[in-house]
């Protein structure tokens, strides 16, 4: 196999690793926003979850307990968001921002109090984090050119949370489009009055949406510190929650399209990492910063209608008043 093809394959592999938290957060964003609640707190929920997962995994020795704790904390933050925006009809952007800033402060403050390591958790041992899962027949298929390599590098060898992230997409789509809950959720983000007058509680529907968002962000956060990384470092979400938000918009609030956006954004990041300092023919030094900024630039262009049109749910951002 040529060197280029292998490089490309490895980039795809990295894409998947980088996209996994984006995918989970994007699905979270879709649930929340489809119900009419803006969620810029994907970032903060993910960061809190990353810390919780690493801390609990370290203290208990079990990454699974870590995930469960992370999900609990993230859902609790979702409920705080709901309490502010659904129950008290507060500004959804302000509430999300508060959660993001709270998460920045809380993770470091509690981290220092618990571990005295400048806000980090101690590095996790392999038993405390999610290791790669080697699929069946990797050895057997290895002899087949191309397919064997693809199977080994791209499909096999990720940790369980990556597969969970990929599974979250069809699951979200099924929930949104094939179930009673999904029909009501989509309706409440468009015309909440219709849902209310049909005898369904707007408040409870939206709470369920922000709680599901919390659940998914929780897994995403756990992935950062106990799957992709080996321990928590401060600000480790590094804006991924906002990229996921961009992916939600870029995917026009639909799971499959959002998956595409996440993979594209992940690929840009993986490519940027690989091309750091590399001289490209014709272009010169690879424009790494431009590649990293592309998700944001493309989202701006899409929102402005220069490349297609994205229609947000009609009732988004508006508290429901009878």
């Amino acid at each position: 196999m040529s060197e280029f093809a292998l490089q490309l394959l490895l980039t795809f592999d990295a894409t998947l690793r980088l996209a996994a938290p984006l995918i989970l957060c994007a699905m979270a964003g879709i649930f929340s926003e489809r119900s009419g609640v803006i969620d810029i707190s994907l970032e903060g929920k993910m960061l809190s979850a990353a810390f919780t997962a690493a801390a609990v995994a370290h203290l208990s020795g079990s990454p699974w307990l870590g995930v469960m704790a992370a999900v609990t904390v993230s859902m609790a933050l979702g409920i705080v968001h709901g309490f502010a925006c659904i129950t008290h009809r507060g500004n959804q952007v302000v509430s999300g921002l508060a959660i993001n800033i709270l998460a920045s402060g809380l993770t470091v403050t509690i981290g220092i109090a618990l571990f005295r390591q400048g806000g980090q958790t101690p590095p996790l041992t392999s038993g405390e984090r999610f290791g790669p899962i080697t699929w069946w027949f990797v050895e057997g298929l290895n002899t087949i050119p191309l397919i064997g390599t693809i199977y080994r590098e791209l499909i096999s060898g990720h940790n369980v949370l990556v597969y969970l992230a990929l599974a979250a997409v069809p699951l979200s789509a099924w929930l949104l489009y094939k179930t009673r809950f999904g029909l009501r959720l989509r309706a409440v983000g468009e015309v909440p009055e219709a849902v209310d007058s049909a005898g369904v509680s707007v408040v409870w529907l939206r709470y369920r949406a922000v709680i599901i968002a919390g659940l998914l962000c929780g897994i995403a956060g756990a992935y950062l510190s106990t799957g992709q990384g080996a321990g928590f470092v401060r600000e480790m979400s590094a804006g991924k929650g906002y990229i996921a938000l961009a992916a939600v918009i870029f995917g026009k609030w639909r799971p499959a399209q959002a998956l595409g956006a996440c993979l594209m954004f992940g690929f840009l990041e993986a490519g940027a990492a690989r091309l750091q300092g590399v001289e490209l023919p014709l272009i010169g030094e690879a424009p790494v910063q431009l590649m990293l900024a592309l998700p944001y630039i493309m989202t701006v262009l899409l929102l402005a209608g220069f490349i297609g049109r994205a229609h947000p749910p009609a009732a988004i951002g508006e508290p429901y008043v009878k």
Binding site: R180, R184, A187, E190, V195, A198, G199, A314
Partner: peptide, 17 residues
């Protein structure tokens, strides 16, 4: 109280699916 981007059927189902 209709959801404009739902079909008539979906609108009628809403609340008693």
């Amino acid at each position: 109280m209709l959801v404009p981007n739902f079909t008539v059927l979906e609108n009628v189902m809403l609340g008693s699916e």
